[in-house]
Amino acid sequence: MKNNILHTAESRFLADHGWLKSAQTFSFHDHYDPQRLQFGALRVLNDDIVNGGKGFGRHPHDNMEIISIPLEGTLEHQDSMGNVAVIRPGEIQAMSAGTGIYHTEFNKNADEPVTFLQIWLYPNKLNVTPRYDQRDYGKGDMHNKFLQILSPNADDEGVWINQQAWFHIGNLDAGFETAYQLKDASNGLYVFVIKGDIAVDGQPLSTRDGYGLWPDSEVKITASSYAEVLLMEIPEKW
């Protein structure tokens, strides 16, 4: 039986570059922890705050599925495929880096920070043609339910990526109970609490805590306060 893993908000590595503050759940760049390399195909989960007018200059990626979810503020994206876009809270961006891309990500506003989740997954196909996808999910029904915002299927809800992964996001009232049914019984589930307090199969979690588990098929989620929750269903192997 595979072990569940708890990553409290306080246990994350904090990188402070002045213009960027990054709380990193897994090993990233100069920070290496052999006990925190990944959860299945989930390789990076960074909780980033970028100062006004600052951002990530032009840099390359390849053979990685990269997802950005803004939580506060506005993020401007440009890439070598010719895409120029702005993403805001209530939107999700996905890039399949494939054979290789260059891109930049900047805070669109000069006078306020932008907070966003930067998530990387290993792909299940290498050297694909790079692609960009962006969707608005903010008008979807997330009240006491989980809205799908990412999947492996181009004709399904949300953005799609080259991996057998599904992301859902929900806003739960205090006292609300629900269950998440895995799309693939061999997958794991990584739960990230954006805000609030919940219990996942009895495990208490608070704001910015993460919890990875390998359930048989279903996970019970109970909110003990108002909570905003991101569910990431992830394959063990890819």
Results as ranks from 00 to 15, higher is better:
1 M>T: 04
2 K>V: 05
3 N>I: 00
4 N>H: 12
5 I>F: 10
7 H>K: 11
7 H>S: 03
9 A>C: 07
13 F>L: 03
16 D>Q: 13
19 W>L: 09
20 L>P: 12
22 S>T: 15
23 A>R: 13
24 Q>F: 03
25 T>A: 00
26 F>M: 08
26 F>D: 02
27 S>K: 05
29 H>W: 10
30 D>M: 06
30 D>P: 02
33 D>G: 06
34 P>S: 11
36 R>Y: 12
38 Q>H: 15
39 F>K: 08
44 V>Q: 00
46 N>C: 08
46 N>Q: 09
47 D>C: 04
47 D>A: 03
47 D>E: 07
47 D>L: 02
48 D>A: 03
51 N>Q: 14
52 G>T: 10
55 G>P: 04
56 F>T: 01
56 F>A: 02
56 F>N: 03
57 G>Q: 01
62 D>C: 12
66 I>K: 02
68 S>T: 15
69 I>H: 01
75 L>T: 06
77 H>A: 09
79 D>E: 01
79 D>M: 01
80 S>I: 11
82 G>Q: 09
82 G>V: 07
84 V>E: 15
85 A>G: 09
85 A>C: 08
86 V>K: 14
87 I>T: 13
87 I>M: 11
92 I>M: 13
92 I>D: 05
94 A>R: 10
95 M>R: 03
97 A>M: 07
101 I>C: 02
106 F>V: 04
107 N>S: 08
108 K>R: 15
110 A>L: 15
114 V>C: 13
114 V>L: 07
114 V>G: 05
118 Q>L: 11
118 Q>C: 11
118 Q>E: 07
118 Q>T: 09
121 L>N: 02
121 L>K: 10
124 N>L: 04
125 K>G: 00
128 V>Q: 13
129 T>K: 13
129 T>Q: 13
130 P>I: 08
133 D>V: 01
133 D>T: 04
138 G>T: 08
139 K>T: 03
140 G>R: 03
142 M>S: 14
143 H>G: 05
144 N>K: 01
147 L>Y: 14
149 I>G: 01
152 P>N: 04
153 N>L: 11
157 E>H: 12
157 E>N: 15
158 G>P: 11
159 V>I: 15
159 V>S: 11
161 I>G: 11
163 Q>E: 06
167 F>G: 03
168 H>M: 10
169 I>S: 05
177 E>P: 02
178 T>I: 13
178 T>Q: 10
184 D>N: 11
184 D>V: 10
188 G>R: 01
189 L>R: 01
192 F>M: 06
193 V>D: 00
195 K>V: 09
202 G>I: 02
203 Q>I: 05
203 Q>N: 04
205 L>Q: 03
206 S>T: 10
207 T>W: 06
207 T>E: 13
208 R>A: 07
208 R>I: 00
209 D>I: 05
209 D>F: 08
212 G>K: 08
212 G>V: 04
215 P>H: 04
217 S>D: 14
218 E>W: 09
219 V>C: 08
222 T>W: 01
224 S>T: 15
229 V>A: 05
230 L>R: 00
234 I>V: 15
236 E>G: 12
238 W>I: 11
238 W>A: 14
